[in-house]
Amino acid sequence: MGFRIIENIVSGDFAFEAFGETLEDLFASCAEACFSAMAELSKVDPKIDYSVDISADNLDDLLVDFLSELIYLKDAEKIFFSRFDINIDADNISLNAVARGERIDYNKHDVKVDVKAATYHNLEIKQIENGFEVNVILDL
């Protein structure tokens, strides 16, 4: 699992390509990419747990809705997340996850740029030989 930042999109946004052997890994990679745009993830300790339950009409929407929920919690609860335990029910297109992180601390987290939203722009989860991949653009 992991992600790679895409450089050549001329925009004010943050584009990345994520990979995962399983859908759970893929979603966790996307969540890590999202929070790595905002802070140095290695400095965000997994001290506080938040449960997230989401269902959607399709897997692409499930991913956008999952990222949107984490972005919402970032502002509403003033928290950065760095660890994600995710269970996905692909038949029912739903997930339950535990996101772990800590309250935003400017002295500790090497804070970067705010993520305003996850977009649907050209977003399509694709099955590849060893798992799944997706391109995501976040609005900064």
Partner: peptide
């Protein structure tokens, strides 16, 4: 700020 970002997110979701 986050207020507008959330309204954009909410309605993009429901407009599908």
């Amino acid at each position: 700020r986050g207020f507008g970002h959330q309204i954009g997110t909410d309605y993009l979701q429901s407009f599908g």
